[in-house]
Each structure stands twice: as C-alpha cells, then as structure tokens.
C-alpha cells in the first residue's frame, strides 16, 4: 500500500506568540516549530499500515525552508520519501490553495491512501484533507480513530459527537483525516535519524506540480490577528501559593458556597 501523509510544521505548542508588524499573523523570528500534533498521529498511522501491509510512505509539506525539519523528522521516524512544496508562490496559502497544491502532488504520486491530521493547530482550518478529496474526486472520511485495511477497501472508525462512533467502508483510493489519540506515535531512533540522511527529499515548485498561478490564488484573507478580549468575569487571585489557596477556599465557602 502506498500512503501519502500530509504534514504541517506549526509553532511549538508552548511557544509564546507575538504578532508580526502587520498584525495579520504571528512573528516567526525566535519562534520554535514542531510537526503539527494531529499530523504526528497521521504519520504514525501511515507507518503502521506500511509495516503491516507493505508499501511506501511518502510525506509532503508546504512551507518555507524551516519546514524541511519536519520532513527530516518524518523520514527519521520511518517515512521513505519526502516532498517539499517549496515554491515562494506556495507560501502562506489559504485552505483551498493548500489543498490544490497537495492534491496536485497526490495526483503525481498516485498513492492508495492519503492521510492528514484532523486540523492544523495554527490556522485551525480542519479541512485540507476534505478539500483534497473533492479536488481529486476521491471518497473521504474524517476524525478517524481506527483503520482496518482490506485489499480494495478500508473499514474506518469515525468519531461522532457525544461519545458515539460509526464504522464506515471506504473504497481506495481515499483520504482520511486522523484524530489525535488513534495510536501512540513513536520517537525517531538514532538509527532512523542516520538513515534519514540518505532518503530522498524532493523540492517541488508550482510548475513541477503542473499548476497555474490562479489555482492557488487566495479565496480568503486574514486582515487582522489579535488577542481575544477578556470577558472580565474571571477574578484573579494573587499572592504566594499559600495566600491564593487560602483566599480561594474562603471564596468557595462564602461567595460560591460550594464547600
């Protein structure tokens, strides 16, 4: 089974975010980056399917030069090849343009299955995989918690609201978006890190993907990014650990009357 895994490099979860000069995104200088957490689960699922059924895992990302780090990490974990959609025309795309670019790469690779995490933790679009499915005219399913692979179809467990699930049969080729927690992602081993150095990491431009510039023209624009206004409801307790503990107990007894 040939599996195509889409990854995104996003600011590290604990990174302190500061706005850029235009106040339309965060400032990237001094920011540390990591593979988007849901994509880590998608990669792990791809690697497990390959280990069980044979085949190949190809990882792909869009992004500036720094994003190669995410691809190297994926190669170190066991992916076979990496594609970096690295054209300047492919930077800071909106959800539709991102999906167009990735779908073009999928068309060239012709995998049996493409996986994405269920959302990117930075822009939170949560739809790249679904958009790709429509662009490719492939079936898809979202928020997947288990995959049972057959010869020509998959049985996948989709998470629904309120603790419900359902099994869905999806014929291949297909796209799935993977829910966090589906597996326990591995760490890269030293052997894996060394092996990664000899694995192919290919750069692709818009032209390589066979896309005209208008295919990735923006359909939406972020004009401003800002910190949410505080509701003002919260009462902050300040002081040493002992002082805040004391005043909290006081308030829970006398104001909230919950103790």
């Amino acid at each position: 089974m040939k599996i195509f895994v889409c990854l995104k490099q996003v600011p590290a979860r604990d990174a302190a975010l500061r706005l850029n000069a235009e106040a339309n995104w965060v400032r990237e200088t001094d920011l540390s980056f990591e593979i988007n957490e849901p994509d880590v689960y998608a990669l792990e699922e791809g690697l497990r399917l390959k280990e069980k059924h044979g085949g190949e895992v190809v990882v792909a990302t869009l992004g500036p030069e720094r994003a190669t780090q995410a691809l190297k990490e994926a190669l170190a974990k066991g992916a076979d090849r990496a594609l970096h959609l690295s054209d300047p025309a492919l930077q800071n795309l909106d959800a539709y343009a991102t999906a167009r670019a990735l779908a073009a790469a999928v068309q060239q690779e012709k995998p049996d299955l493409a996986l994405t995490g269920l959302q990117a933790d930075d822009d939170g679009f949560g739809q790249t995989g679904v958009l790709m499915a429509e662009i490719l005219d492939w079936p898809h399913s979202t928020i997947i918690m288990e995959i049972q692979a057959g010869e020509k179809t998959l049985k996948v467990k989709r998470e629904l609201e309120g603790g419900y699930f359902q099994w869905i049969e999806v014929p291949l080729p297909a796209i799935l978006t993977i829910q966090s927690g589906i597996n326990k992602p591995r760490y890269a081993t030293l052997k894996g890190i060394l092996a990664a150095k000899n694995k192919p990491l290919q750069k692709l431009s818009l032209k390589d993907l066979g896309l005209p510039a208008e295919a990735v023209s923006p359909r939406q624009r972020i004009s401003k990014v800002y910190v949410p206004q505080k509701s003002g409801r919260v009462e902050f307790l300040e002081g040493t650990a002992r002082e805040v503990a004391r005043s909290l107990v006081e308030k829970l007894r006398n104001e909230a009357r919950v103790m």
């Binding site: 600011p11 975010l17 965060v26 933790d121 930075d122 822009d123 939170g124 923006p218 359909r219 939406q220 624009r221 972020i222 004009s223 401003k224 990014v225 800002y226 910190v227 949410p228």
Partner: peptide, 15 residues
C-alpha cells in the same frame, strides 16, 4: 475565527 487553539482571533474576509 479562533486561531492557535483560541489563543488568538483572526478577522477573515472572503475574496
């Protein structure tokens, strides 16, 4: 829209 897990908000305009 919320971005960065709700740490920031983004004014987003359809084009």
């Amino acid at each position: 829209r919320p971005v960065f897990q709700g740490k920031l908000l983004a004014d987003t305009e359809p084009l």
